Lab assay of single mutants.
Amino acid sequence: SPEEIKAKALDLLNKKLHRANKFGQDQADIDSLQRQINRVEKFGVDLNSKLAEELGLV
């Protein structure tokens, strides 16, 4: 269901964000992850996106 997909995506992105902060990645990478999280919260996951591929939806 779209809600489950959204939850999985947010979980994955939050893990990536945590790792980025923990290991001191570029601020641009961290900002990009934050924008992705905001986009998923607002609009859900686009099944044509790279994120959908990472989640194994495509």
Rank of each mutant, 00 (worst) to 15 (best):
Gln36Gly: 01
Asp31Glu: 13
His18Met: 13
Arg39Ser: 14
Asn48Ser: 11
His18Arg: 13
Leu33Lys: 00
Ala52Pro: 02
Asp11Glu: 15
Asn38Val: 12
Val58Glu: 08
Ala9Cys: 07
Val40His: 00
Lys22Val: 11
Ala52His: 03
Arg39Asn: 13
Arg19Ala: 14
Gly24Phe: 06
Asp46Phe: 06
Asp11Trp: 11
Ser32Phe: 13
Leu10Ala: 01
Asn21Glu: 13
Lys6Gln: 05
Leu57Ala: 04
Ala52Asn: 02
Glu4Lys: 08
Leu47His: 05
Gly24Trp: 06
Ile30Gly: 02
Leu13Trp: 00
Lys16Arg: 11
Pro2His: 14
Ser1Val: 08
Leu33Arg: 00
Asn48Met: 08
Phe23Ala: 12
Glu53Met: 14
Lys8Gly: 03
Ala28Asn: 10
Gln36Met: 13
Ala28Val: 09
Lys50His: 09
Leu33Thr: 03
Asn14Ala: 12
Glu4Gln: 12
Lys15Met: 11
Glu4Trp: 15
Gly44Met: 01
Gln25Val: 14
Asp29Gln: 14
Leu17Asn: 00
Asn38Thr: 12
Arg35Ile: 11
Ala7Thr: 09
Val40Asp: 00
Arg39Lys: 12
Glu41Thr: 11
Pro2Val: 12
Lys8Trp: 12
Leu10Tyr: 01
Arg19Glu: 14
Asp46Met: 05
Asp29Phe: 15
Glu54His: 05
Gly24His: 11
Leu55Ala: 02
Lys50Ser: 12
Ile5Asp: 04
Gln34Arg: 14
Arg19Leu: 15
Leu33Met: 04
Glu3Phe: 06
Ala7Trp: 09
Leu17Ser: 00
Leu17Pro: 01
Ala7Cys: 09
Val58Lys: 12
Glu53Val: 14
Arg39Ile: 14
Leu51Ala: 02
Glu3Gly: 08
Asp46Pro: 08
Ile30Ser: 03
Leu55Gln: 00
Gln27His: 08
Ile37Arg: 02
Arg19Ile: 14
Phe23Trp: 10
Val40Phe: 02
Ile37Met: 03
Gly44Asn: 02
Gln27Ile: 09
Glu41Leu: 12
Val40Pro: 00
Asn48Trp: 07
Gln25Phe: 15
Gly24Cys: 10
Glu3Val: 05
Ala9Gln: 01
Asn14Ser: 08
Lys42Val: 08
Ser49Arg: 02
Asp26Ala: 14
Gln36Lys: 07
Gln25Thr: 12
Ala9Gly: 04
Leu12Arg: 05
Ala7Lys: 15
Lys42His: 07
Gly24Arg: 07
Gln27Tyr: 06
Lys22Tyr: 09
Ile30Cys: 04
Asp26Val: 10
Gly24Met: 10
Ala9Glu: 00
Ile37Asn: 00
Ala7Gln: 13
Ser1Thr: 13
Gly44Thr: 01
Leu47Lys: 06
Val58Tyr: 11
